[in-house]
Lab assay of single mutants.
Amino acid sequence: VSKLITEALSVSQERVGMSLVALKKALAAAGYDVEKNNSRIKLSLKSLVNKGILVQTRGTGASGSFKLS
């Protein structure tokens, strides 16, 4: 899941990052079952932020906008 998230964010052209909703849409378009794996998406977002791979530009927790650091 982390690999899919970083790939989706690297393609994004948004300056402020990608919102959680837009990220879920991009994952669904890539063929990932978002409804079934919603908790996995949130956990991997939090772990990527803690590792310093992603930066959360808006919001708290697993909601808001994210971009690559």
Rank of each mutant, 00 (worst) to 15 (best):
R15Y: 04
D33H: 15
Y32M: 15
E14Q: 02
S65D: 13
S47Q: 13
L23A: 03
K46T: 06
L9P: 01
V21S: 13
S63L: 13
I53C: 08
N38G: 09
K51V: 02
M18L: 10
K24E: 04
S47D: 11
T57M: 11
V16F: 06
I41W: 09
N37I: 15
G52S: 08
F66T: 08
S12V: 15
G59D: 13
A22G: 03
I5P: 00
I41Q: 02
V55Q: 08
V49K: 07
T57E: 15
Y32P: 06
S44K: 14
K46M: 06
G59P: 08
V11M: 05
G64C: 15
V1L: 02
K51A: 07
V34I: 09
L20M: 12
N37H: 14
L43G: 11
L9H: 00
S63F: 12
K46W: 03
V11G: 09
L23G: 00
V16H: 12
K42N: 04
E14Y: 01
G59S: 09
L54N: 05
V11S: 11
F66G: 08
K46V: 07
N38A: 15
N50P: 10
L43T: 14
L27G: 01
S39I: 00
S69M: 07
A62G: 15
I5H: 00
V1H: 00
Q13A: 05
V34H: 03
S44H: 08
I53Y: 07
K46L: 07
K24S: 01
K46D: 04
G31I: 04
V16S: 13
L4F: 08
A28R: 13
L23K: 00
I5W: 02
V11L: 08
V55R: 15
G64A: 15
T57I: 08
D33F: 15
N38S: 14
K36R: 09
E7V: 00
Y32C: 03
A28K: 13
A8C: 08
A8I: 12
A26G: 00
N50F: 00
N37V: 07
L54V: 15
S39K: 13
G61I: 07
L45Q: 01
V34A: 07
I41L: 09
A8K: 03
K3N: 08
S63G: 14
E7C: 02
E35P: 04
K36D: 03
D33M: 15
A62L: 05
E7W: 05
S2A: 03
S2L: 03
K51P: 04
K51N: 10
S47R: 10
M18F: 02
R15C: 06
K24A: 01
S19H: 05
I41K: 02
D33K: 09
V55T: 14
S2F: 04
T6H: 11
K3V: 03
T6Q: 13
I53E: 13
Q56A: 15
N37G: 10
K42H: 08
L48V: 02
S63N: 09
N38I: 07
V16R: 01
Y32S: 08
S69W: 15
N38P: 07
I53M: 11
G17E: 13
G61C: 12
R58A: 14
L68C: 06
E14F: 00
N37Y: 05
G52I: 04
K42D: 10
T57F: 08
V34Q: 05
Y32R: 11
K36S: 05
K67H: 08
R40L: 10
R58Y: 05
V21R: 15
L4M: 14
I53V: 12
G31V: 08
S69F: 11
K36Y: 04
K25G: 06
V16K: 07
G52M: 06
S10A: 11
G64V: 15
A8P: 00
S10W: 01
V49I: 12
Q13Y: 06
T60Q: 12
F66K: 11
G17W: 02
A29Y: 05
G31R: 05
A26Q: 04
G52V: 06
A8G: 02
A29S: 12
K67C: 10
A22C: 12
S10G: 13
K25Y: 00
A62K: 14
G59M: 08
S10R: 08
L48S: 00
V16A: 14
S12D: 13
V1Y: 05
K67W: 06
G31L: 05
L54R: 15
R58I: 10
A30F: 04
R15K: 15
V49T: 06
L27S: 01
G64P: 15
I53S: 10
S63H: 13
A62V: 10
E14S: 05
S44M: 11
L68M: 10
V11W: 11
N37F: 07
L68I: 06
V55C: 10
K67Q: 10
M18T: 12
L23I: 10
E14W: 01
V55A: 09
S19G: 15
S44I: 06
S39T: 13
L45R: 00
S19P: 04
S19E: 02
L45Y: 01
G52C: 12
G31C: 05
K3I: 01
S39F: 01
A28E: 07
A22N: 05
E14R: 01
K24W: 02
K46Y: 00
I53H: 10
S19R: 06
L43V: 01
S69G: 06
F66M: 07
N50V: 03
A8N: 02
L9R: 14
K24H: 01
K24Y: 07
L45N: 00
E14M: 01
L54I: 15
K24I: 01
N37T: 02
